[in-house]
Design a protein around this nucleic acid. Structure first.
Length: 270
DNA sequence: AATGAGCGA
């Protein structure tokens, strides 16, 4: 396991108050270039110098859970010390120019991107109080939130999380007992960058999911006992929900409506 | 306290 601190380490910039960002006028999305590679130099070369490898080689990382004030400048502050950032971009709403809370960081080489992914993942963002949420950019709207396509996810809800619980800790807490754990996510408040105190754990195996629902109830994670619940599934395709539920609800509603209609009819006809 | 703002001209 690679530790931050050697190799490419996340910078530890001072406690810069985010206030300076909050009143910044809305601006068009832009791509910030590192000073090492000014636009003027690029314009002179016949070929774009930043395409040394095959075009299909992914050298871009996706970053999520960004707070509203975290702009391109901020991202460059975070990753510029690698000296290998070719562009950073925060995705914004077309009308309001407000950040959508995610962005992209492109690097010189895939190797650099990979190293950054390994060293930064889970470490604390400058000023943020939250950990980086990084992943490979996919370039396709398709398989987005599925890191592994080996079948459906079986997800549980985990509440009562202490403020310091990270994705990694949550994941490892469950992986210690269940080897089909695919991942864990602590939900972050975008306004504060802090944990909302709950999260989700995904299992590949449905049996382990069900076991965890009872076995992990009240088990300590960091400093607090966890509270496990069923997750309302985000993507219905992988849902494990019993099919009878919806139909039962529907027919029950129909019954109620029918009964009410009869009452109304009785009154109308009376 | 309480069920995920997730892939770009």
């Amino acid at each position: 396991m690679m530790q931050p601190g050697h190799g490419i380490a996340p910078p530890n910039i001072g406690q810069q108050p985010p206030q300076q960002y909050q009143h910044a006028p809305p601006q068009q999305p832009y791509v910030m270039m590192p000073p090492q590679a000014p636009q003027a130099l690029w314009a002179q070369s016949a070929q774009p110098p930043q395409q040394p490898a095959s075009a299909d080689e992914v050298r871009t990382l996706w970053i999520g859970d960004l707070q509203y004030w975290m702009d391109e400048n901020y991202l460059y502050t975070c990753f510029g010390n690698t000296g290998e950032v070719t562009s950073v971009k925060v995705i914004r709403n077309k009308q309001t120019s407000q950040s959508e809370g995610y962005g992209f960081i492109e690097f010189n080489t895939r190797a650099t991107a990979e190293k950054v992914l390994q060293t930064y993942q889970g470490t604390i963002m400058p000023n943020g109080g939250q950990s980086y949420r990084l992943n490979w950019a996919t370039f396709s709207a398709g398989e987005r939130s599925s890191r592994q396509d080996d079948g459906p996810d079986h997800t549980i809800f985990v509440g009562d999380l202490a403020a310091d619980v990270t994705d990694y800790l949550l994941q490892e807490t469950f992986r210690a007992r269940y080897n089909s754990v695919k991942g864990a996510k602590v939900v972050i408040d975008r306004l504060t960058g802090r944990s909302k105190g709950y999260g989700f754990v995904r299992f590949a195996d449905e049996g382990e999911q069900m076991r965890a629902m009872t076995e992990m109830q009240g088990v300590l994670c960091s400093t607090r006992p966890m509270r496990i619940g069923p997750a309302t599934n985000k993507n219905p395709a992988a849902a494990t929900q019993p099919k009878g539920c919806q139909e039962a609800l529907s027919s029950r509603s129909l019954e109620l409506i029918s009964a009410e209609m009869i009452t109304i009819l009785v009154h109308v006809l009376a």
